[in-house]
Write a protein that binds this DNA or RNA. Structure first.
Lengths: 335, 335
DNA sequence: GTGAAAGCGCTAACAA
DNA sequence: TTGTTAGCGCTTTCAC
């Protein structure tokens, strides 16, 4: 069943069928009606590759994420897909599994598929894949790289706001020594988070102790390892902020296992506000990164390039804010 | 940069370039070498829609899942994508969000994209979408529908094995009254699980109390609601098996909130063995559904149709087995 | 071993 | 308002 067959049955040309399907107003109502009936009756489904070939656009966007096991990303994917579906766009999903090597391959696959743009949430990005995209005039929107250019936009996260709220919250609870468990080393996105933490602590008039800055990996295991290290220290912080919720959950596990109580012995703050953070016990105080807004910004940013893939990129910003639950409490009185 | 341009530069015809790219052995090594150099130098990327149009195959499979917020599915997606990527196939992901209405639309999108087959893990499937697929000769592999046909295979789950192990485990711990919190009502997949539970209980020589059979929704909220109902009863089971892990986690939350201890007051068994089940406290005893094997079966089943989309379908089966952790313990001595 | 050419199904410019 | 037609870029006979 192709368009010509439909055209023949409806007694028109394939051009008319095409016009009816794309909703052109140039077709007489009666004709359109007749065509539509035939289309329905024969359950005609157009061939997307033919129109992509002709039109040069595929009506699909690529989404590249680092790690589908971190619940933040499924939550984001759900929002992103929902927005695209409402616009009759498709989503091509790829995971890099935190391996930089997979990125090149992934981007190639998306180029072959003629995606209209790529939302890149994976941080392991080097300049080469980006150049490939630009050469092929495929718009790119990155997360928190803070670089823009022709066909390149960025959605930056305003960590500072949420971090300041978190540190102030802890400060009001009399915490003086605040530790931080970061993300994977060497990623700019990790640096941004750490810097925001440092700034927020300084701004609250507290001292930043370098030895209280731990490195994680954005996974449960990183939180566990860092917390184990922390507990081995003599002089310890009384509160810990983690680079994301799963890291905080890892830290919390170790605390429970070692017989400490949260928030009685240690206060804990996460980042992302994944669904799970409300479900663990105690429910996690966390810094919210609004997923729906983030997804909307990515789509908006991508759409800006839909007429001109070489247009100048923009920087978008999402705010973060503190969500207080039960994993934070008054500082225990110990030295 | 299209194939003709590459051909011109390499001093051959586009047919030769095509042959080189597809790895045909009919090209002289020297020629192939020269072409490959040009391809690399100009970073040529072929246009997938052109070959899909010509060839009729897109080298991509659709994956339809019900609910991306249930961690089981991201874990599955990761495995499925990994297997496809290794075969240079792409994945088109769609979520139905448990809404039957979205299914029709989703399947249409996949037909437009010319997918080579669909893996359907969402249970809200009616006959109409299936007919659409068959008419369009798109192979379909379903999860636990237990129906096969031309171009239609099924991956069934052998619940019984895992359920029997779970019930026996509880029985050895002296539990006599075992409750069950099921999945969403009206789904065949929910019925299969419930039946397996009933059979396993009977086989252990215990009585099946209809009032101990609760309905859930495969989400945390369903586990919470059911557990709240259960606690309101005078005569209660001492152990509960849930239709999936998130349901069990919901149940566990309510127990903790109401001051009960797991496993001291109630034993709890989940289903799926999601990563999270090892992380909650207490770590959840659960029935393992092997994700990687499941994903591999889906891909294998799809590939069986790659030469002939009308071939007869098969039934594949995955086994389940019990993973004992700490949410199960001896039955408390109460009536 | 390589090239010429037809055509996959659709769209848009142009013609009527 | 509708039809004719020329490709979009690739693959694959068929000819040489």
């Amino acid at each position: 069943m192709d368009m010509r067959a439909i055209a023949k049955i409806a007694g028109v040309s394939s051009a008319t069928v095409s016009r009816v399907i794309s909703g052109s107003s140039l077709v007489r109502t009666a004709t359109a009606e007749r065509v539509r009936r035939v289309v329905d009756e024969w359950k005609y489904v157009p061939n997307g590759s033919a129109s992509t070939l002709k039109y040069g656009r595929s009506n699909s966007y690529g989404l590249i994420i680092p790690d589908i096991l971190n619940p933040f990303f499924p939550e984001f994917i759900g929002k992103f897909e929902g927005i695209l579906v409402a616009k009759s766009q498709d989503m091509l999903l790829a995971t890099t599994d935190l391996q930089a090597a997979r990125m090149q391959h992934t981007i190639r696959r998306m180029l072959v598929r003629q995606v209209d743009g790529i939302a890149l949430l994976a941080a392991e990005i080097e300049t080469e894949p980006i150049e490939t995209l630009i050469r092929n005039r495929v718009p790119l929107v990155t997360l928190d790289r803070r670089l823009v250019g022709r066909g390149l936009s960025d959605v930056s996260i305003n960590y500072l706001r949420g971090m300041i709220q978190a540190v102030e919250h802890l400060s009001q609870l009399r915490h003086k020594k605040i530790g931080y468990i970061g993300g994977s080393a060497g990623l700019t996105i990790s640096d941004h988070r750490t810097q925001a933490f440092v700034k927020a602590v300084e701004r609250a008039g507290l001292k930043v102790e370098p030895k209280f800055l731990f490195v994680g990996n954005y996974r449960v295991s990183g939180g566990e390892t860092a917390m184990a290290e922390l507990l081995a220290m003599k002089d310890r912080p009384t509160a810990i902020i983690a680079a994301n919720d799963v890291t905080a959950i890892g830290a919390m596990r170790v605390l429970h296992r070692e017989g400490f109580s949260v928030p009685h012995d240690f206060s804990l703050v996460g980042f992302d506000n994944i669904e799970l953070s409300a479900i663990v016990s105690p429910p996690l105080t966390t810094i919210q990164l609004p997923r729906h807004e983030l997804a909307k910004m990515f789509v908006t940013a991508l759409e800006c390039f839909s007429t001109d893939p070489d247009a100048a990129g923009k920087r978008y910003t999402v705010k973060t804010s503190l969500v207080v639950r039960s994993s934070t409490g008054p500082s225990p009185r110990r030295s």
